[in-house]
Design a protein around this nucleic acid. Structure first.
Lengths: 336, 336
DNA sequence: GGTGGCAATTTGAACGATCAAATCGCCCCG
DNA sequence: CGGGGCGATTTGATCGTTCAAATTGCCACC
């Protein structure tokens, strides 16, 4: 009666082949301690011979879990392939933890919450990773209210010690590392080029610069440039700083895009070497390709992904683990 | 007895609330024609009131389908966020067709096929999209042998009319459009800068250039530059062409990376305008950011994704639709 | 020799949905 | 007035797995 379906072999087929009951086969796979060694061996051979693989839908139904993590992806707007790299790290980390990543793209903005709810209610996913948390993100309280498991990559700014679980990278620390590096190489006029005020991560990185400059007893006045993310505008902003009376000799930047702009604005000296030294942020392949010897601050994406998945798994399985914020340190990749 | 679970409401709860049987509720959702209007209305109200959503695992089990499409993602190496954009298009198209995209990352190279097989055998996915088909891809015959549904984005080079189903973009046509555009703007010495021989898509694009040059009766000798993908090497290769006796006045390029390199090598004239005109390939945001007024050839990613999903759906559901190759036309985005 | 205990294994039920077949109620027609 | 036909609805079985409880077999102990 069994084994008649397309994909094939069921647990009962294996049981019949090994001369045991379904449950014993299940035990061999899920609770090996309960089965006598020689029985287990016989079952394993039957499994091997028939090529049995447990049906996921049946497991999901029985266990009330999909072992899938939901991730919303939005229309790509940025320049870097940051999402690519995070996605890969997350997929790998999820796989190592026995999960899969399930992507979805909400069609209309209003639908967004409905789509999240649907995925949970239908049991399509067990929880979510939010990689695009904004300052007053309405999803966070909404999820918490419904006890929907989720973990943020990126701090919920203003509520770092609040009821949410997140993993993030200490941007201020990274920028300080950049300043230290440039100072060690003899620079005294180190400018900061990044986003205008208002983004959590941007403000933090700028503060890191200021802190490091004070620590090194270096002048900071007039050494701030801000602009939106974009090579052209960044080059323009950097150019303005460079034509001042006492121009900077080096830049630390909020993003690699800003950094490439600064690099272009600085131009080359008579030996064909870049005139200003620059430290970027993200160590993106695109920037490296354009400006191979530029230093940059690298986020530990693999570690981020592992922690995110670990925390989410705990919240999915455990029920109510307490909220937790994990801060990781980026690393300066010095190339000059 | 029912409705005791965490997520909640089952079809039986709805049935009880509406005073009908399970099956009638199921019919309201899946075969509305079979249900009397007033009954259907009553059931719909119960669904609404209880917030019922059918359990996906139960559906999957019964219907022997997961409504998930598997996609392998590899460690990102390239510079462009092409994958980002394709991923988004694919996720949207899948969603519109009632599917979800499920990502996975094989750990070891040897494991790759095993991972594919596992996902199918466990019923985790219904089929695959292959976005990285190489010339003698061993996965294709392997999948075909096992009747595993899949569709390629990118031609299986050398077997375009073979037993495989694919969707691709006509790169040669795109490059020809680029040459036409440059010729119409008065250029006569139009160089090609792209990958060295050996990649299917690269060779095709170069052939497109040659064909167009012949069509326009323009000289092609000595106007080919090849190099790996990378801004620096591309700039170098373009520079070599530009220092020849009769240098090109314009470039069509195999990729945006090559194009940015050519643009840099060309430099600016005394008015601050680019000295050579360049047409890139992919219309990537990164390139636009670096070189805002550069033209490029845009692949119709949304259309590609829709077709891929449509073909895969047919092959998953229909069983044995005949193999089919779909060729789409890219479009020149002229900016200069 | 009966019994308690324990390890190994089996049986029955459940997860939540859908398909196929059976049933119900109703009207029409001979 | 009985039966055929038909639309609407219900019942029973099933998908493949795992949990909980029941059963079996075996040994030791009193």
């Amino acid at each position: 009666m069994s084994g008649r379906n397309a994909n094939g072999v069921t647990i009962s087929d294996v049981a019949a082949a090994a001369g045991v009951s379904r449950q014993t086969v299940s035990n061999v796979l899920n609770a090996p301690g309960r089965v006598a060694p020689e029985t287990a061996e016989r079952v394993r051979q039957a499994i091997e011979k028939l090529g049995y693989r447990p049906n996921r839908a049946a497991q999901n139904l029985r266990e009330r879990a999909s072992r899938c993590i939901g991730l919303k992806i939005a229309a790509p707007i940025g320049v870097s392939n940051f999402l690519d790299r995070f996605l890969y790290a997350l997929t790998s980390a999820a796989g190592a933890a026995g999960y899969h990543l399930l992507l979805f793209a909400p069609t209309a903005v209003d639908e967004e919450l409905a789509v999240y709810e649907d995925l949970i209610r239908t049991g399509t996913v067990d929880g979510f990773v939010l990689a695009d948390v904004s300052a007053k993100d309405r999803r966070l309280p909404w999820f918490a209210e419904r006890r929907i498991p989720f973990v943020c990559f990126g701090r919920p700014w203003g509520q770092e010690d609040g009821p949410y679980t997140w993993v993030d990278v200490d941007g201020a620390y990274g920028i300080e590392q950049g300043v230290d590096h440039l100072a060690a190489r003899g620079h005294r006029r180190i400018a900061y080029l990044g986003w205008p005020e208002g983004t959590g991560f941007g403000d933090e990185r700028r503060k890191g610069w200021l802190r490091a400059m004070e620590r090194h007893d270096l002048p900071a006045d007039g050494l701030i440039g801000v602009c939106a993310e974009g090579v052209a505008v960044a080059a323009e902003a950097a150019g303005r700083l460079l034509t001042m009376p006492a121009p900077p000799t080096a830049f630390v930047c909020g993003s690699d895009t800003h950094a490439v702009g600064a690099r272009l604005a600085g131009g080359l000296d008579t030996d064909g070497r870049p005139r200003v030294e620059v430290v970027g942020f993200d160590d993106s392949p695109a920037a490296t390709l354009i400006s191979p010897r530029m230093s940059s601050i690298r986020q530990p994406l693999d570690e981020v992904a592992r922690r995110v998945v670990g925390l989410l798994k705990a919240r999915v399985q455990g029920g109510d683990s307490p909220p937790e914020g994990v801060m990781l340190r980026p690393e300066l990749v010095a190339r000059e």
